[in-house]
């Protein structure tokens, strides 16, 4: 069987160059958010969620539990769905972050957003940005997901209003649409 990934048997034990120590105060962070390069000042203890909401005024990503147990803060980092409340912003240096605000292009909703409206896949709407981001991540890997695929993708996104059946429909329907 072919080896996957780097060869892990030869990790160099030699020191490279001086390691930069950042913080504890604010430090400059450069990353890409919704396709735009941004630079923000953040202390290392600031989460990506708080950075998005407060420093970048992207309040579409919601804070619900702030401890990785609800999924409302789901965003994509380098194309994969993660919890931004458990991610320190400083670890996202140079990475590509996508939030709910970046989905609609030229005033046109993303197919997943349209599918959510058509399937009535939300009630209060507070979990919705996270649910949508989870499904967007799924569709990039699985363009025509089954109901089970969608369930697995949003099993980490709680909805207290109980819109789940419609969320699953929206995910499946979004896969059937073309942008």
């Amino acid at each position: 069987m072919a080896a996957r990934g780097p060869n892990i048997s030869n990790v160099p034990l030699t020191s490279a160059r001086r390691v930069v120590l950042r913080g504890p105060g604010a430090t400059e962070l450069a990353l890409t958010v919704n396709g735009q390069a941004v630079t923000v000042q953040v202390p290392p203890r600031r989460t990506l969620l708080d950075t998005l909401r407060e420093a970048l005024a992207l309040t579409g990503t919601k804070k619900v539990c702030d401890e990785g147990t609800c999924g409302a803060c789901t965003v994509l980092v380098d194309g994969r769905a993660i919890y931004s409340c458990m991610t320190l912003a400083v670890t996202c240096e140079g990475k590509r972050v996508e939030t709910i605000e970046g989905l609609a292009k030229d005033g046109e909703l993303h197919p997943v957003q349209r599918a959510f409206i058509d399937a009535d896949a939300f009630q209060c709407g507070f979990c919705t940005p996270g649910q949508i981001m989870s499904i967007v991540a799924l569709l990039r890997e699985t363009p025509a997901p089954t109901e089970d695929d969608v369930r697995r993708a949003v099993a980490g996104n709680l909805c207290r209003c109980g819109a789940y059946p419609n969320i699953v429909s929206a995910g499946v329907n979004a896969g059937k649409r073309k942008r």
């Binding site: 909401r53 407060e54 005024a57 992207l58 309040t59 579409g60 990503t61 919601k62 804070k63 939030t99 709910i100 605000e101 989905l103 609609a104 909703l109 957003q113 959510f116 409206i117 058509d118 009535d120 939300f122 709407g125 507070f126 919705t128 940005p129 949508i132």
Partner: peptide
Amino acid sequence: RRIDGPQRVTGRARYTQDIY
């Protein structure tokens, strides 16, 4: 369809938590 759907699916709907 819910008339506030576009607001809710784009993150534009402003909740109390989002008032800064």
